[in-house]
């Protein structure tokens, strides 16, 4: 079991105290954000401690001063010109003791994802539309972050089409699920809600023993584990019957 040592007494800010929304890019191609923070004083943090918000994507990040624990004050300019384009933004909230010289972190919230709709929050593999250039879809699955299936926003109604068309679903989902499992199984923190959700998903499709093999085995023979994961996707396809459903729809359409 992974153990965490916290020698400086840094507190965790509960994720439900922070809610962020990323606004789509304007004509200048730059996104911006809005972020609300709950009453940090209820965590026993000193009123004068500084609050900073850091949106980030992989190695790109920016810092915004958000006032103090006693007086949260979002800056007027919350644009994100130095954050990587076309990727999901996460947020960190830091509370810093600036009375000493070591910049001690009093509290931290990390990996805060912006709000999406309720259905997407509950889905194992949430869908999100984004400008993907010429790509129809892409899986966003970085370590430490919940995987997302990205659908190109440039084609009108593509997301809805995917949800309604079993042929399209059958072409996209098994591959996306396969690649997502390959990443999620290496996640260090097994207690994360979305990791547990993935494990449950695999268990529902292929059984508890397979789920244990995929998520609990450390070192593995790459080819052998790939086969196990491929088999999960094969079972998913058999259960969901994408092609049969698509044929049925096609038949119904041709019969008028």
């Amino acid at each position: 079991m992974k153990r965490h040592f916290n020698f400086t007494g840094r507190q965790s800010i509960p994720a439900d105290m922070v809610s962020a929304v990323v606004q789509p890019a304007g004509q200048d191609g730059i996104r911006s954000f809005d972020l609300r923070i709950g009453d940090l004083a209820t965590l026993g943090l000193p009123a004068g401690a500084r609050v900073y918000v850091e949106p980030y994507v992989k190695s790109s990040s920016m810092r915004f001063a958000f006032g103090t624990v006693g007086a949260i004050l979002p800056p007027q300019d919350r644009s994100l010109p130095e954050i990587d384009d076309g990727a999901g933004v996460l947020f960190r909230v830091l509370v810093v003791d600036e009375t000493d010289k070591v910049g001690r972190l009093l509290a931290l919230a990390d990996k805060i994802a912006p709000l999406g709709d309720e259905q997407q929050r509950d889905a194992v593999l949430p869908l999100e539309t984004r400008d993907l250039g010429e790509a129809v879809w892409r899986l966003e699955a970085d370590k430490g972050v919940r995987p997302k299936l990205l659908i190109n926003s440039r084609y009108p109604g593509l997301k809805q089409r995917l949800l309604e068309d079993p042929l399209m679903m059958g072409a996209v989902l098994p591959l996306a699920v396969r690649d997502a499992i390959r990443v999620v199984r290496h996640e260090d923190d097994e207690a994360l809600e979305w990791v547990m959700r993935w494990r449950q998903f695999v268990e529902d499709v292929a059984g508890a023993e397979v789920a244990e093999r995929i998520f609990d085995e450390g070192e593995d023979d790459g080819d052998e584990m790939d086969e196990v994961i491929d088999d999960v996707c094969r079972q998913l396809v058999e259960k969901r019957r994408y092609l049969s459903r698509a044929l049925k729809i096609a038949e119904a359409l041709s019969n008028g």
Binding site: N6, F7, T8, R10, R50, Y52, R63, L94, V96, E98, K101, V102, G103, R104, L105, L108
Partner: peptide, 17 residues
Amino acid sequence: AMTHDLRTAEPAEVVVM
């Protein structure tokens, strides 16, 4: 950076750490 803010910590203090 998990426990100290690198933007506000004094450089001399960080060198010591």
